[in-house]
Design a protein around this nucleic acid. Structure first.
Lengths: 131, 131
DNA sequence: CCGAATCCTAAAAGATACTG
DNA sequence: CAGTATCTTTTAGGATTCGG
């Protein structure tokens, strides 16, 4: 299967996305990845294992609730592993799984595109407002 | 700037995302791209110009309202051009701009990743439910 | 320290009806 | 044909409190 040619492959993506159930599942997964915090949590876990509190500190603005929810979803989807150490006080460590790490490259590509195009998009928004 | 090495570059992305304003703008753009319909509209416009009605037909399930909103946002951000032909009945054509086309590749990479991992993620979800 | 439970608001999205 | 307007439902996310 060729996934390198935009012209052809995007049609394949399109066909996958509009199929009744596959579409719903695929969109659910894409939504999951692209929500407010997921990409940031994955990016933060790149490079090694972190505890809950460390994650909380490194992601300014995230609430405990959203960090917990995001981690649970990532764990459920098999992208992050969660290890509880039976100590007092408790220590819980999070780490990307192989699947989670495999997400880094495409996620990076998209984030990179967004970073590159921020000025251009902002300019376009300004121009649009005036018109 | 190196954007090809996940280990290093993801930290760059992370640093971009947590910066006060740049972070907000960047996340707003990512949110925009990854919302329920944007990727699908962009994928559908790959390959050529389409009228409003054609888009509506090729994207099952989208409401007129959401198609309009999505197209307005894409137009505002400079990813899609909108051409009104002064005829009766009216004819409005939408087309990807150069910037819009440049989004195809990274968007494709992410969608491709999601498509590839659907079975694995679903299996992980099943296992998670039971446990 | 880690996180579950609850309550609340704002935004997104859907349904429906109408118009130049 | 290509929208706009309005209404309702649904969801995401934040604040706070409590528990193991």
């Amino acid at each position: 299967m060729c996934l390198t040619n935009g012209g052809v492959a995007m049609k394949y993506v399109h066909s996958c996305m509009i199929r009744g159930d596959g579409g719903r599942t695929l969109r659910a997964i894409l939504d999951q990845i692209c929500n407010k915090w997921t990409l940031l949590v994955v990016a933060t876990l790149d490079g090694g294992t972190l505890r809950f509190k460390e994650l909380h500190q490194r992601i300014p603005g995230i609430s405990q609730r959203m960090l917990t929810l995001t981690l649970r979803h990532l764990e459920r989807d098999g992208l992050v592993s969660r290890t509880v150490h039976a100590e007092v006080p408790p220590r819980v460590e999070y780490e990307l799984t192989a699947t989670g790490r495999s997400l880094l490259e495409p996620a990076l590509a998209l984030a990179g595109w967004a970073i590159e195009h921020v000025p251009q998009i902002e300019a376009s928004r300004e121009a649009y407002k005036k018109a």
